[in-house]
C-alpha cells in the first residue's frame, strides 16, 4: 500500500499520515492524522475549536499565544492565516 500524505492543517507542510500508531491515545488527540508534528497540534486545537465555536475568541487567543510562546512563531498555512489573525487581533 502506498503511504498517504496530506498537508499539515497548521503549517501546510506535506507529511505522511499515520492512522495506526499511538493507539493508546484518545482518538480525538491523534495528531499524526492532522498535523506534521506534535508541536503543531498545540496550535491546531485552539484554531479549530474557535472555528467550530467550541471556545471563545479570548480562550482561543490565550491558548494560541501559549503555543507560540512555548514552541515559537511559525508560518501558518495560507488557508488559516485570516482566522489566525482574527484570533490574535487586539
Amino acid at each position: 500500500m502506498t503511504a498517504t500524505y496530506r498537508n499539515c492543517m497548521v503549517c501546510g507542510k506535506r507529511f505522511k499520515i499515520c492512522n495506526t500508531c499511538l493507539k493508546s491515545m484518545p482518538e480525538e488527540l491523534q495528531w499524526r492524522r492532522v498535523v506534521c508534528c506534535s508541536q503543531h497540534f498545540a496550535y491546531h486545537l485552539p484554531i479549530i475549536r474557535y472555528v467550530r465555536k467550541e471556545i471563545s475568541r479570548d480562550n482561543a487567543k490565550a491558548e494560541l499565544q501559549h503555543a507560540i510562546t512555548t514552541f515559537g512563531e511559525i508560518e501558518f498555512a495560507e488557508n488559516i492565516k485570516s482566522v489566525v489573525n482574527e484570533i490574535l487581533a487586539d
Binding site: E27, E28, V34, I48
Partner: peptide, 9 residues
Amino acid sequence: VGAVGKEIG
C-alpha cells in the same frame, strides 16, 4: 468522531 480536524478526512 475522530482526530480533531479529520472526522471526515
